[in-house]
Computed example of a mutant assay.
Amino acid sequence: MTGFARTERQAGALRVRIELKSVNGRGLDMRLRLAPGLDAVEIPLRQLLSKALSRGSINLVATLDRGGAAGTVRVNQQALSAVLSAIEQLRAQEPMAISRPEAILALPGVLESGDGAGEHDEEVLTALVLDCAAEAVERLQAARLQEGAQIAAVLLAQVDAIARLVADAEAHPSRSRAAVETRLREQLAALSQDLAIPPDRLAQEALLLATKADIQEELDRLRAHIAAARKLIAEGGPAGRRLDFLAQEFNREANTLCSKSNAVELSAIGLDLKAVIDQLREQIQNIE
């Protein structure tokens, strides 16, 4: 879910620049840094981002250049006339030195900054910023889609590895009743060579142990999760949350398989399965 985009828009003396950066995140975390005068567009920008993106830590920086208007000033003639009139009235009452022009201009309200606030309609500025941000979001999505295509190949390879391990576990000879009976007979022989157990009782115990250690249900669910994961990856689109849930279910079944294992080789397969599932979960955190 990483990506970067930069766009610019200009209307007259106004120039807007939007920079978007995305890094991995479990949810959608938006951080906006807006230039002075753009506070009114914060909520529309957040709405735009939330509609287009569902996961990731998003940083948006919006800068505004007002061109030459930002460095100009103008005289408020109405305020200046009022100040001069007041000065004349004071001089008529009491003789005083003529006020210096810079002192008059320094009075509040006489000079106004040409910041463009009255020259550019607020709606025009808002539309300019949102249009610029929309293009930045499109470019960011394109970058994230390119990364997603690469991660999808990795995810499919990991799902294939899980499928191979599931097949190995299902075909392992230690799951048969005959294998369980053989191990049970060897264990009993090691305990006491003189201990005599009827063959039918031995067969019953072997069947009971084989039933408790049966992992067919876990294998069936793992195959169902494999099919669901492949379908989600093939469909594309925002699938990170659903794949994250499937990874948790993968891990749950792998833990049960290891706990039921009645052979060292089968336990090793279960541990390999858990290792691949952990790798899968790490990669899933990188997709939307």
Score class of each variant (00 low, 15 high):
residue 153 A to W: 04
residue 137 V to E: 06
residue 141 Q to V: 13
residue 130 L to S: 06
residue 161 A to C: 07
residue 175 R to K: 10
residue 191 L to S: 05
residue 169 A to K: 02
residue 140 L to N: 01
residue 140 L to V: 03
residue 170 E to S: 13
residue 148 G to L: 11
residue 144 R to Q: 12
residue 153 A to K: 13
residue 145 L to G: 05
residue 138 E to R: 13
residue 177 R to V: 10
residue 182 T to C: 04
residue 129 V to R: 01
residue 163 A to N: 07
residue 185 R to Q: 12
residue 166 V to C: 13
residue 180 V to I: 11
residue 161 A to E: 15
residue 163 A to M: 04
residue 182 T to H: 12
residue 142 A to H: 12
residue 144 R to F: 10
residue 145 L to Y: 01
residue 155 L to T: 07
residue 140 L to Q: 04
residue 135 E to Y: 00
residue 179 A to P: 00
residue 178 A to N: 03
residue 179 A to G: 07
residue 170 E to A: 15
residue 183 R to K: 13
residue 170 E to T: 04
residue 158 Q to E: 15
residue 184 L to N: 02
residue 139 R to K: 14
residue 147 E to N: 10
residue 188 L to F: 05
residue 157 A to G: 13
residue 136 A to D: 02
residue 131 D to I: 05
residue 151 I to V: 15
residue 192 S to N: 13
residue 133 A to S: 12
residue 128 L to F: 07
residue 171 A to M: 06
residue 128 L to G: 10
residue 165 L to T: 02
residue 147 E to Q: 12
residue 192 S to F: 08
residue 188 L to K: 00
residue 136 A to W: 03
residue 189 A to Q: 12
residue 148 G to A: 12
residue 132 C to L: 09
residue 173 P to Q: 08
residue 135 E to P: 01
residue 143 A to D: 13
residue 159 V to D: 07
residue 157 A to C: 06
residue 143 A to I: 06
residue 181 E to Q: 15
residue 172 H to I: 00
residue 128 L to C: 09
residue 176 S to F: 07
residue 182 T to Y: 01
residue 183 R to I: 05
residue 191 L to W: 09
residue 177 R to I: 07
residue 169 A to Q: 05
residue 172 H to C: 08
residue 143 A to N: 06
residue 141 Q to K: 15
residue 155 L to W: 03
residue 181 E to R: 15
residue 159 V to F: 06
residue 178 A to P: 00
residue 191 L to G: 03
residue 171 A to H: 12
residue 145 L to Q: 12
residue 169 A to L: 10
residue 152 A to G: 09
residue 169 A to N: 04
residue 167 A to E: 11
residue 145 L to C: 08
residue 184 L to R: 00
residue 151 I to L: 14
residue 162 I to N: 03
residue 146 Q to N: 13
residue 148 G to Y: 04
residue 154 V to N: 13
residue 171 A to S: 15
residue 174 S to W: 04
residue 186 E to G: 08
residue 136 A to G: 15
residue 177 R to S: 10
residue 191 L to Y: 02
residue 141 Q to P: 01
residue 147 E to K: 09
residue 162 I to F: 07
residue 150 Q to S: 14
residue 160 D to H: 14
residue 130 L to Q: 04
residue 188 L to Y: 02
residue 169 A to D: 08
residue 168 D to S: 14
residue 175 R to E: 08
residue 133 A to W: 07
residue 181 E to Y: 02
residue 180 V to T: 15
residue 188 L to P: 00
residue 156 L to H: 11
residue 184 L to I: 10
residue 147 E to H: 08
residue 154 V to Q: 15
residue 185 R to D: 01
residue 157 A to L: 11
residue 135 E to I: 00
residue 144 R to W: 10
residue 149 A to R: 15
residue 132 C to H: 10
residue 139 R to C: 08
residue 165 L to E: 01
residue 181 E to G: 14
residue 148 G to S: 10
residue 161 A to F: 01
residue 177 R to Q: 14
residue 147 E to F: 09
residue 148 G to D: 09
residue 151 I to K: 06
residue 137 V to Q: 00
residue 138 E to P: 02
residue 151 I to H: 08
residue 176 S to C: 05
residue 192 S to K: 07
residue 135 E to N: 10
residue 192 S to C: 11
residue 170 E to V: 04
residue 133 A to N: 08
residue 130 L to P: 04
residue 170 E to Y: 03
residue 141 Q to I: 12
